[in-house]
Write a protein that binds this DNA or RNA. Sequence first.
DNA 1: GTGGTCTAGACCACC
DNA 2: GTGGTCTAGACCACG
Lengths: 130, 130, 130, 130
Amino acid sequence: MIIRLDFDSEIPIYTQIKDEIVKGIALGDLTDDDELPSVRGLAADIEVNMHTVNKAYKILKDEGYIRIDRRRGAVVSVNLEESTNRFMKTFKRDLEIGVIQCINRGIPKDKVKDLVEDLYSIYLKEDQRG
Amino acid sequence: MIIRLDFDSEIPIYTQIKDEIVKGIALGDLTDDDELPSVRGLAADIEVNMHTVNKAYKILKDEGYIRIDRRRGAVVSVNLEESTNRFMKTFKRDLEIGVIQCINRGIPKDKVKDLVEDLYSIYLKEDQRG
Amino acid sequence: MIIRLDFDSEIPIYTQIKDEIVKGIALGDLTDDDELPSVRGLAADIEVNMHTVNKAYKILKDEGYIRIDRRRGAVVSVNLEESTNRFMKTFKRDLEIGVIQCINRGIPKDKVKDLVEDLYSIYLKEDQRG
Amino acid sequence: MIIRLDFDSEIPIYTQIKDEIVKGIALGDLTDDDELPSVRGLAADIEVNMHTVNKAYKILKDEGYIRIDRRRGAVVSVNLEESTNRFMKTFKRDLEIGVIQCINRGIPKDKVKDLVEDLYSIYLKEDQRG
DNA sequence: GTGGTCTAGACCACC
DNA sequence: GTGGTCTAGACCACG
């Protein structure tokens, strides 16, 4: 599990950390019951402050990607039902804004659909297809 | 042209203003050579700080949606070629993160494509179709 | 609105801040659309670190007591439906543990009910009774 | 005597162990002069660190639920008078915070009293009623 | 001036 | 060793 960060990005570091772990789960690099590195360990590893990693983990917990086991630390435990409504609302809004700009720029809808297609083929694990 | 704002959103107000105007252009409510309201007027109208409207207009200018006419103020003038590369980069990245989360939540790719389809049918003006 | 803190308590300061504000809302000292003091202002006032107040506000937001208005800061906006299930679960568990200990100590159930009665008469606002 | 633990809970494991034993005493599953399992044995049984069980036993001793017998280990020996004042103080405070939140959520006082009633009927042993 | 982000470093509770 | 809490102080985005 490699976490790539762009310190020059406008995207907060804790968001990038969270996104990388979410990506790892999508790709199957991380599966249920896997232990994440400790907050301090990961912080040292990727050279950010402990609190930054902590914030990423807290969000992952709130969204239902991990749980904090008092003995083992952060453990992957995917349980997304509760947060899916909230997610869909922001996803739809973001997609709307994106598509509107695509339209204004003359980007055809098939181009966008192809992007979606490509992303699904990259990230969808074999055993999830149907 | 109605501008809807959510002051509790995590999205900056100036971004919301910009997005609403971009939406108006997509829908044809605003077309080339239309004058936008004055910075002060709009600010008073939607009850935000003048600087906030100013920032929205500045971004619209930078992205190629409007030009600033000394006498007429902000005038719609769509010229997006220059900013399209930049847009596509962030759009792809945002779409990637969104799709990854959809995958983790078991949302099928056809659902996402349908969302794209719906948005195109809502926002694509007749004369742009082909 | 006075916030009383006990720095020697085992209860985290941010929890105490949160509880005091929740109490203020119950008592009607704070009502919908009231503005809370700024994070920094309150922090200076009660002599704690900004981040500690910030954490209290974040929890109040997550629980549905306040919203963050980009123009006005933290604003009371009570919307508890979403978090009530979660609350009831921990309340029932805490009450269970408390009652069990009362039973072991020979405290009669009417004594506990009287405590509940007293608390309701202290904190329930007139207009909520029925 | 079954001890149920939730390793993902915000409640420390030693507290959970203590609470489960207190519950067993309330239910009459454990009565005066019963021997608790050895620290090592219980720790192995419920898969926690030996120190964690040790801490739970120490608190049970301090609160007057058990005594430590050199030969027999931890032995149930209920003697709660001394700790009841301390208990009542934290119980009242916890109940206060809980009730305040109930009030804010529109939960009627009879609902809370019913919860108390239910808990008493579940946990109060026949021979203690009066 | 507001909240949001990030760092550095400390202490504590828990396991 | 772990995560949780708290402080102090900095910079930035926003309004």
